[in-house]
């Protein structure tokens, strides 16, 4: 059983990324254009947006929680960065990350202390954060006038990378080290797998939850700040799309929606798979509605396959069929 679980952790993301990569490699057949390093750059640009949110969401899912407020944090981060970073880009990033980190910590503390499902609290904070974003922005889309910073974050480095995508990759590298070199990884999984057992063996459940939501907020603030600089404007309402993409990245990355399972490598591959898939859609000029259908269907399929009772339903059906086959006399047709 544990071997099979270990397998799914690495198998799902590798297969998912492999399929998307194969689809990408086949795109020249579709329109005859040559594969370019520009595609890699674009994919990593997409990854910079999807990846940080996917990391934030993925970590909370592994710990058995769900942070719906990622969308609100991203929106607030963008507006704060544009407001505070007019002269110095870094100042804006610091304001965005700091504010979202603090708000996430408050939210995490409430969730940890009360034991209310994080879905309910983060739904409320999501709505509140969208409102706060509008208040801070004065109810209008903010443009970012500092063109130097806007160009700098997207400049090409080693033909594939940009400061923005390197920041996202850096966040994953830090998470990877913390997950594999400290007890944090197993402890977060224990939180998601069996919280009571985690508490019994001495995992500081409340502190971990508070820090987890703080980190989730900070990552989304960073994502919002970098995206706002890149677009030279801050969106007031990102809609549900970033959440759909991040959730898709998490589940393609082998994270179970039931908590307790997932790896940073898997999340990285899952986010890269989603970003590359977006690039494939861009190359093949798929209309937005079709992209919505693909990602919506993908999320639906995954959530159904991951459903806890599906296994028992399937197992019962199998057992019934097996008993019919092996002992037809014992179960006569009615």
């Amino acid at each position: 059983m544990s071997l099979r679980r270990l397998g799914a952790d690495t198998l799902v993301p590798v297969v998912a990324f492999g399929i998307v990569l194969a689809a990408y490699l086949l795109t020249p057949v579709y329109d005859g254009h040559a594969l370019a390093s520009f595609d890699a750059y674009n994919t990593l640009q997409g990854f910079a947006s999807v990846g940080l949110i996917a990391l934030a969401l993925g970590l909370t899912i592994v710990a058995g929680e769900f942070d719906l407020s990622v969308l609100g944090m991203q929106a607030l981060g963008g507006v704060l960065a544009v407001k505070a970073g007019a002269d110095h880009g870094l100042l804006g990033v610091a304001a965005a990350v700091g504010a979202c980190l603090a708000l996430g910590a408050i939210q995490g503390t409430i969730i940890a202390r009360t034991g209310i499902g994080s879905m309910a609290i983060t739904l409320g904070t999501y709505i509140a954060l969208l409102g706060l974003t509008n208040v801070v922005a004065g109810n209008q889309t903010l443009t970012y006038a500092n063109a130097d910073v806007a160009i700098w974050v997207d400049q090409t480095i080693l033909s594939w990378f940009s400061p923005r995508s390197l920041a996202a990759l850096g966040a994953f590298a830090v998470a990877l080290v913390l997950f594999t070199r400290t007890r944090l990884g197993p402890e977060l999984k224990a939180l998601g797998g069996d919280r009571r057992a985690a508490r019994v063996v001495g995992v500081p459940v409340r502190r971990h939850l508070a820090v987890l939501f703080a980190v989730s907020g900070g990552l989304c603030g960073l994502a919002g700040a970098l995206l706002a600089y890149s677009n030279a404007s801050a969106q007031l309402n990102p809609g549900l799309e970033p959440l759909v993409l991040a959730a898709a990245a998490a589940v393609l990355g082998g994270v179970s929606l039931r908590g307790g399972r997932g790896t940073i490598w898997g999340l990285l591959l899952g986010a890269l798979a989603v970003a590359l898939l977006q690039q494939v859609f861009a190359i093949t000029k798929l209309p937005t509605s079709s992209i919505q259908i693909v990602f919506g269907a993908l999320l639906l399929i995954v959530v159904v396959v991951d459903a806890p009772d599906l296994r028992s339903v399937v197992a019962r059906a199998r057992a019934r069929r097996a008993s019919h086959r092996s002992a037809p006399v014992a179960h006569p047709e009615p």
Binding site: L240, A247, Q292, I293, F295, A297, D306, D309
Partner: peptide
């Protein structure tokens, strides 16, 4: 699906809503 298989209702409805938006706009 939620009742029968215990699928996570929030994520399921996010996916369903996204799919529905795609279909209606198509």
């Amino acid at each position: 699906i939620v009742g029968g298989w215990g699928a996570n209702p929030v994520i399921l409805t996010i996916g369903a809503g996204f799919l529905l938006s795609g279909v209606t706009s198509k």
